[in-house]
Amino acid sequence: MSSLVADLAVRVGSLALRNPFLLASGIWGESGDSLAGAWAAGAGGVITKSIGSLPRAGYPNPTIEEYSTWGLLNAMGLPNPGMDEYPREISAARSHGALVIGSVFGSDAEEFARLARRIAETGVVAVELNLSCPHAEGYGTEVGSDPKDVEAIVRAVVGSVSVPVIAKITPNTSDAPALAVAAENGGAAAVSAINTLRALAIDTTLHRPVLAHGLGGLSGPAIKPVGLACVWQIYERVRIPVIGVGGISTAEDALEYIMAGARAVEVGTVIAHQGIGVFSRLVDGLSHRLDELGYASVSQAVGLAHGAGR
């Protein structure tokens, strides 16, 4: 078996990736040089910061509360340079060969469609819709919690761009899989899950929330089991590919997501703990583990834990 080298290339719908490890939106995505750096470090693709219509500073600091190893709480507040400015960063990343997926956030279907159209013009290979930021008034979860809204937004975007549309859905709802079904009905090429879990930290000495915004979103190893359950349930309800996100720090974590039904995964918080070199470790680790288990490709392992592959 040691002579096998598992094929890590995956297809997410029509999107071909050299490996399943995507840089998650919000991480290293403000500058084109950073996106290029994540690509050079071995990411299978890089997702931009979520870009809106206008420049947005985000919330004041503290925007982060760090827990020892199990998680990270953040409320960045969707900082981004705005759609007029950002295309130069995508151009810079693409000039280094990076495969870029553009993330956008809007307050309604019309704004999402307009932003998606503009970011698609920059040469991104897909558009991911941020329907799930848990702490931004008027955006993210607030427009992405009702299946009817999700379906309408996705439909409007799909009608405006020719690249695949990925809906990133929220776990902060009673029925996340219903949101994935809505995205599928709207014509999404794929669904990514999960975004961060709404969360809070309080400083007891000062008797106040630590983050300037109060509420934030929890990421990191603590949320992996939640993300896995979500991907598992979504996989049983939709036919479009699923991208797994949440607390992945090792190849084994990624393989859990793959066996739960994910065709690709996004990684983010682990970069704070291990640096950007984590991409090559994940790639090597997954290749090694697939070899060890006797799978020739990632595809062979997708959804295996459900008892029968599709």
Binding site: N61, N74, T269
Partner: peptide, 19 residues
């Protein structure tokens, strides 16, 4: 913002000033 090498606020060319 984060000071952890993640949020990209301090990006300077290919570097992150915080790490």
């Amino acid at each position: 913002k984060c000071a952890l090498g993640m949020c990209d606020a301090c990006a300077l060319g290919p570097y992150h000033v915080c790490v």
